[in-house]
Computed example of a mutant assay.
Amino acid sequence: MASDEPAMTTVTSKGQVTIPSSLREQFGLEQGTKLMVVPTEYGLVLKKVDLPSVEEFQQRVEQRAETVDVSLEEVTQLVHEARSENE
């Protein structure tokens, strides 16, 4: 199936949908992958959320620490807030 061909799925009583396996493979969607659901004027759009690895996150924090004065406690709080938003 080409990526521009539409695929059909059904919403369950729990509000769940199954993404066809060909599209899961094409877009690298595995169990536990986070998807953002974005309402648009045309309908709903699913966007894969790529969270950085722990190593990437630590590198980003270290780079920012050189220019921004942020405590470890503040970073921890921001991480918890971001995780809550993505659940």
Rank of each mutant, 00 (worst) to 15 (best):
L35H: 08
E87S: 13
T10G: 02
L51Y: 03
E41C: 10
G43P: 01
A7R: 15
M1T: 13
I19D: 02
E74Y: 05
V37C: 06
R60A: 15
R24D: 05
L29I: 05
L72F: 10
T76W: 03
R64Y: 07
E56V: 07
V70I: 13
V38P: 00
V68Y: 06
K47I: 11
A82D: 06
I19C: 00
L23V: 03
L35P: 01
M36I: 12
V45K: 08
V45Y: 07
T33Y: 00
R83A: 15
T12M: 08
D69A: 12
G15A: 03
D69N: 12
T40Q: 02
G32F: 06
E56F: 04
M8E: 08
S3W: 06
P39N: 09
Q77W: 02
R83S: 13
S3D: 11
Q77K: 11
P52L: 09
E87L: 14
E81R: 03
T12L: 04
A82M: 06
E73A: 13
V61F: 01
V61G: 02
S22T: 10
F27R: 11
A2P: 10
K34Q: 15
E30W: 02
T18D: 04
E41L: 11
G43T: 03
S53N: 00
Q58L: 13
Q16Y: 08
E66T: 04
P20R: 02
P20I: 00
Q77C: 09
Q58M: 15
A7L: 11
E74Q: 12
R64I: 05
R64K: 14
K34W: 07
Q77Y: 07
V61M: 06
P39Q: 06
